[in-house]
Amino acid sequence: MVSSIGLAVILAAILYVCATETHNETHKCEDILVHDKPHKKHIVSKGLNRPYQLAFDKHEHRIFFSHNIGSDNEDEFEIGYIEKNQMLPKTVASVINGFAIAVDNNDDVIYYGGSEGIYKENLKGMEAVNDTKKVHEVVKGHNIWDMFYKHALYFITYPTQHLYKLTSKNEIERQKHVHEEIYQFAIDGHDDTFITNETGLFLIKNETKERILYKGPKVFRAIEINNKGTAYFSGKNGIYVANKTHHALDLVVKVKNIFGLAFDNDDNIIYSNPHAIVKLLPGKCD
């Protein structure tokens, strides 16, 4: 996991200083446009401290996330999750400084990344009280920055910001075709790759090495692929979707201070702000 000093430095470079949180956002009902259609905010959980790395369990409808449990001056991250129709989070045990999360919804497996490696757990039969015996270590000695799952687990290490792949034999392979130091990585439904680095967002088309710079925002906190295979990005002033025709980002939702991003089974957007996890549901406020 990232040290408190290291995390502060790198987050200062790629994240945004949070403006004073408008707590009214979590209490008042207000319409918000998603793809130009009215939606209402449903508060999934609140009272959190910078929930990152949202991930959705499509079978049990759990929302996983990492959040800071340290003081305002020191970052100490922990992985938690919220059960369907509940607001109080539960804690995933045995992951020191848990920061990164990736879900394999086909095989009902979740991966947790922390300061000492990567851990794996079967989502089926997860008990209300986390059973540490069900969490198995699969990668040792790597400080995990971010993870993504498609057919295999990909992960980014800190502080090198290098991309690796976990093979079926639990061996790790450096992904040398992504030679840059990167912050996020994702593969969309066309098997095209998106990466972010200090200069912005790039597309690497399937079976090519050419980098295509995307027009629009340059700094992001998350990339997420929806159920249709479309890539979405959380930027400084909203959530964007990849426009592959013009190699640009189109604004989908105008909302500030987003930390994490995910989609439920119906492709409703789930996002987190500095203190809450919110789901956007179709329809106008009552």
Rank of each mutant, 00 (worst) to 15 (best):
D192H: 02
A19T: 07
L11W: 04
T193M: 05
G216M: 00
E137T: 15
K84R: 08
V139R: 00
D36Y: 03
I10E: 15
T208I: 03
N97S: 03
I223L: 14
E198P: 00
N97G: 06
D57K: 15
L201T: 08
I239N: 03
K215W: 01
V17N: 08
I10P: 11
H142D: 03
H27F: 08
N243R: 15
I225G: 03
H61E: 14
V255M: 06
T196D: 15
A55R: 06
I225P: 02
C18Q: 13
H23Y: 13
Y232R: 10
Y81I: 07
E180Y: 05
K150A: 05
K256Q: 13
G125S: 10
L48W: 03
S3Y: 08
K140N: 14
I118H: 09
A19S: 12
M147W: 08
N268D: 15
I258S: 06
N170K: 04
L123C: 10
K236Y: 08
V44Y: 09
G98I: 04
P89S: 09
E224H: 11
Y111P: 10
N243A: 13
E171W: 07
T26C: 09
F185P: 01
A231Y: 05
R62F: 13
D264T: 13
I172Q: 08
L261V: 05
K37T: 04
H190K: 13
A13Y: 09
D31S: 11
F64S: 15
K205W: 07
D104K: 10
F99Q: 09
S234F: 05
I5V: 10
N143S: 14
H162G: 12
V253L: 14
S45Q: 10
L166R: 13
F65I: 01
N68E: 11
T230M: 07
I156V: 12
V2N: 04
I69R: 11
V278Q: 10
L88I: 03
N143E: 11
Q53C: 14
V92I: 08
I156N: 08
P217T: 00
D107C: 09
I144C: 03
I204R: 12
G125V: 04
W145E: 12
K41D: 07
A186S: 08
V135G: 02
L15I: 09
K46Q: 13
E74R: 08
T20P: 12
A13C: 12
H177E: 12
L15Y: 14
K284Q: 07
L123A: 13
F194P: 00
V129W: 12
T208R: 08
Q161F: 15
A262Y: 08
L249T: 03
E171F: 06
Y232W: 11
H275Y: 01
L88Q: 12
K236E: 09
I204W: 05
S3N: 11
R62K: 15
G141I: 06
P217N: 02
L251P: 00
H247F: 13
K218V: 02
K84G: 01
S168V: 02
K41W: 02
I172G: 06
F77T: 11
V139W: 00
A152V: 02
I195F: 00
